[in-house]
Computed example of a mutant assay.
Amino acid sequence: MAPLKAPKDGDTAARGITPSAALSRLVTMRKRADFQRATRAAHVAKPGFILQMRKRRSDEATAPEAIRVGFTCSKKVGNAVARNRAKRRLREVARLALLDLGQPGHDYVLIGRKGATASLPFAQLQSDFVKALDVLHGIKA
């Protein structure tokens, strides 16, 4: 079997393939101040994680249509291997749901929980994330 060849520069653009507009709206938060502002906002605790959400002010530098998301796990979650596994799972949960259910102009922070984020079934994490979004968005109480 021959190895796959990487596309040449501009190959996908020449065929008219453009990345999804929704993918460009999801931005990862990196600055401590952004996480601290989210700490003072609304949150929902689920068995596998805590989800915080805040609406950004209009004077903030980020594009107003962007959905920002951040991930954090403290050392209580475990060693570096356990924290990285937990964050990988949280990133995938957010990627699958936030593009459809996230609201533009909002920041979301997912916080891993000790002994649960890395071990709960992935389907449960997904359903809990959707339920938490519904609560934060005021759809279900």
Rank of each mutant, 00 (worst) to 15 (best):
P3L: 09
P3A: 07
A6M: 11
A6E: 13
A6Q: 14
P7G: 00
K8R: 12
K8C: 02
D9E: 05
D9P: 04
G10D: 11
G10E: 12
D11A: 11
T12Y: 07
A13R: 12
A14V: 06
R15L: 11
R15Y: 03
I17L: 14
P19V: 09
P19F: 07
A21Y: 00
L23T: 09
L23E: 14
L23D: 14
S24R: 13
S24T: 09
L26Y: 10
M29H: 05
R32C: 00
R32D: 03
R32G: 00
R32M: 02
R32Q: 08
F35Y: 15
Q36W: 10
Q36S: 14
R37W: 01
A38H: 02
T39E: 15
T39P: 01
T39A: 15
R40H: 12
A41P: 06
A42Q: 13
A42W: 05
H43T: 07
H43P: 02
V44I: 10
V44Y: 03
A45R: 14
P47M: 11
G48Y: 12
F49I: 11
I50W: 07
L51E: 02
L51Y: 03
Q52F: 10
Q52E: 10
R54P: 01
R54N: 02
K55A: 06
S58N: 07
S58H: 06
S58T: 10
A61E: 15
A61D: 14
A61W: 05
T62W: 08
T62A: 13
A63F: 08
A63T: 14
P64W: 09
P64M: 08
P64V: 13
E65T: 12
V69A: 13
G70W: 01
G70V: 03
G70K: 01
T72R: 01
T72W: 01
C73M: 11
S74K: 07
K76R: 15
K76P: 08
G78V: 12
N79Q: 12
A80C: 14
A80R: 15
A82Q: 14
A82D: 08
R83W: 06
R85A: 01
R85F: 00
R85E: 01
R88D: 07
R89C: 10
R89V: 12
R89M: 13
L90A: 11
R91G: 03
E92Y: 00
V93E: 02
V93L: 04
V93D: 03
R95D: 05
A97K: 04
L98Y: 09
L99W: 02
L99T: 09
D100N: 13
D100F: 02
L101H: 14
L101N: 11
L101P: 00
G102K: 09
Q103F: 01
Q103M: 10
P104D: 10
G105K: 07
G105D: 09
G105R: 09
D107C: 02
Y108D: 02
V109T: 11
L110G: 04
L110T: 08
G112C: 04
R113N: 04
A116C: 11
A116D: 11
T117H: 15
T117N: 15
A118K: 06
A118P: 04
A118T: 08
P121W: 12
F122A: 00
F122P: 03
A123V: 14
Q124D: 13
Q126F: 00
S127I: 07
S127Q: 13
S127D: 10
V130S: 08
V130H: 07
V130C: 07
V130F: 03
K131R: 14
A132M: 05
A132C: 05
D134Q: 15
V135Q: 15
I139E: 10
I139Y: 06
K140N: 11
